[in-house]
Every structure is written in C-alpha cells, then in structure tokens.
Amino acid sequence: MSDTSKIEIRSLRKSFGSNEVLKNINLDVAKGGVVALIGPSGSGKSTLLRCINLLVVPDGGSVRVGDTRFAFGEGAKLPDVRTLAKFRATTGMVFQHFNLFPHMTTLQNVMEGPVTVRRMAKADAEKLARAQLAKVGLAEKADQYPATLSGGQKQRVAIARALAMEPDVMLFDEATSALDPELVGEVLNVIQQLASEGMTMVIVTHEIAFAREVADRLIFMRDGVVVEEGPARQVIDNPTEAATRAFLSHFHRTGALPPANATS
C-alpha cells in the first residue's frame, strides 16, 4: 500500500509537556482515499490531523505527503519556515471555527492564498476564486464580508479558500462541529462532492453517519493510540473492540445525511 499511498505516517509521537497525546501512530491514506478519524475528545485525532500539514510539529516519527517526507526526533533537523510553508501549500485545511480573514471580502479570502503564496496574477486569481466560490454555491456572496454570512456559508468559503491552492490533500478538522444542526448538511454536501471527485481527504468528525457514507476507511482513536481501523462501514456496523463499541453507542450510525440546502 505504501507504494501508492498519498499520505504515510510512521511511528508518530507528540507530547504537550508531560501529556503524551500521540503514541506511535501509523497511518496510510491511498491516493483519492477518504479516511475518517473518530474518537472522544482528547483522543489526539485533531493533533494527528495537524501533524499531517505540520501545524503541530511531531516529536518523533515521520510524515510523508506525496513526495515530501519529514523525519522527526533525535538527530533530525527541524525544517525551516520556508520549507514548511512550501509543504503546507500543497495541503488544504479546514478548521472547526472557519478562521476566515474578517478584514477581507469572501472573494479576497479565497484569492489570498493564490496571490500571496502562489504569486498568481490578480486577474487569474480572481477567476480561480470565483470558480471555487461557485463550486461551493456561494458565487453571489463574493463581495460580502465573512461577518455577514451564516456559519455554514462561512465554512463553505473556508473550503473554497483551501481549494483555491489546488491542494493534493484536504484535511478537515471537525468542520461541522461549530455549526447549527440545520447548517451541517450544506457543508457535508460539499465534502461529499469533493470525495466523489477523487480528492484525498482526512476528516476528523463526529458525524458518524456521514463518515459511514463518505469515508472508505475509518480510524477510531483513544488516548493517543489507534484502537481500531478498517473499512468505514465494517467498523461502524460491526466494531470488534469494546472501546469502539462503547464510543459508537452514543451515535446514530446510519440513516440519511442531514438535509442539504447548498444553494442558500
């Protein structure tokens, strides 16, 4: 699998002070694969996600995305800021709290990466940004500021902003956890569309029914270790580990996705 995998993580370790949040994690994501990371809060799933684009720098192990590999731990030199920036430009990330730039319009938010990081001409970046906004159904909101948008719209802009960098990999960090229930569907719809287009994705989520539909692999984490891993439907429908069963018992695992109204 490692020959064709897009993301490869080996023996990853991370501690915050004396708190060991990741203990020897291995993870492979195939090209075009969609992996859902689930687990109780404090299980380390968000930290693991942030290690993939090195927003969190691991203490040990290695991270490879595409052809770029970084090793951490004793004897390994920490990558410098330019190398890190270049690496992160190839992965898109969507945050729980959107983190849109409030001093820029929606269009400027989406143009920012292409213009500042990819040094694209303004006119080309605008064309690209408008296309991405149209893709998430928000073409007509281009000139509005984020403060005037609903949570679901904000998150769709954030997805468009990440996509404007034309990344190989998309990382979702609890992208729907801060949304009102009626707004979750429109964001999940966009993610599902990306999955169907073959985007490689790692999704940290509490939407178990969504993970079952969209992800091909599912990883259940607890206390910094991978407890169970396998095809999403199999793990959700027939978990083998007691901890996984206990966690999943809190959720509706099947059924329709929340209603989507992506045109609003």
Partner: peptide, 21 residues
C-alpha cells in the same frame, strides 16, 4: 491564533501571515 494558523495552512511564511493577516 486561528488567523495565523489559517495563513500557515495556506502556505504562508510567518512573515507573510504577519503582514497580510
């Protein structure tokens, strides 16, 4: 902090995210 994180995630250097964001 999410603002500079969002800048970093787009591939900005710390200097770029300071100036632009």
């Amino acid at each position: 902090k999410g603002q500079s994180e969002a800048g970093a995630a787009l591939g900005m250097t710390p200097g770029q995210s300071m100036r632009r964001i």
